[in-house]
Deep mutational scan, measured.
Amino acid sequence: PKCKGCFKAIVAGDQNVEYKGTVWHKDCFTCSNCKQVIGTGSFFPKGEDFYCVTCHETKF
């Protein structure tokens, strides 16, 4: 599969995040607002966007 963030291949051994059939490298899975890496931490999906806890609390 290819990462939705950088469009490069995800190979065995890469740390990745999967959500609803889409996959990202862990470092490519970032907050849509502040761009900080969410990685495998908590996040809030809103449509096609993903927000870290801090930005979600501030924005919504």
Results as ranks from 00 to 15, higher is better:
51 Y>L: 05
40 T>W: 14
24 W>T: 13
8 K>A: 04
17 V>F: 09
52 C>E: 04
4 K>L: 14
13 G>V: 13
15 Q>I: 09
8 K>N: 08
31 C>G: 00
1 P>Y: 15
27 D>S: 10
3 C>F: 02
19 Y>P: 06
17 V>S: 07
49 D>Q: 13
56 H>P: 02
45 P>T: 06
23 V>E: 13
15 Q>N: 10
31 C>R: 00
21 G>Y: 03
38 I>S: 03
20 K>P: 05
29 F>K: 10
53 V>L: 06
23 V>H: 13
39 G>C: 06
34 C>R: 01
6 C>N: 00
9 A>T: 05
49 D>V: 09
31 C>M: 03
58 T>W: 04
12 A>D: 14
52 C>T: 01
34 C>Y: 00
20 K>L: 05
35 K>I: 02
3 C>E: 15
56 H>F: 03
14 D>K: 05
59 K>D: 05
42 S>Q: 10
56 H>R: 11
1 P>S: 15
16 N>L: 04
56 H>M: 07
3 C>M: 04
12 A>G: 14
28 C>E: 02
39 G>R: 06
46 K>S: 06
2 K>E: 15
39 G>E: 05
16 N>W: 08
26 K>L: 06
21 G>A: 10
30 T>W: 15
56 H>I: 01
18 E>M: 04
35 K>G: 09
16 N>G: 09
40 T>I: 08
53 V>W: 07
60 F>R: 07
3 C>W: 01
34 C>N: 00
32 S>F: 09
9 A>Q: 07
48 E>T: 11
15 Q>R: 12
37 V>C: 05
58 T>R: 11
14 D>A: 09
6 C>S: 01
27 D>F: 03
38 I>H: 02
33 N>D: 08
13 G>E: 11
11 V>G: 11
2 K>M: 15
14 D>H: 04
8 K>E: 04
30 T>Q: 06
7 F>T: 10
43 F>M: 03
44 F>L: 13
47 G>V: 12
44 F>K: 03
56 H>T: 05
31 C>A: 02
1 P>L: 15
37 V>M: 03
46 K>E: 06
39 G>Q: 09
60 F>E: 11
5 G>H: 07
34 C>H: 07
6 C>V: 00
48 E>Q: 12
13 G>K: 10
29 F>G: 07
46 K>D: 06
25 H>E: 03
48 E>A: 08
24 W>D: 02
12 A>N: 02
27 D>C: 06
12 A>Q: 12
48 E>K: 14
21 G>D: 13
34 C>I: 00
37 V>D: 04
26 K>Q: 11
11 V>L: 12
13 G>S: 08
21 G>C: 04
45 P>C: 04
54 T>W: 03
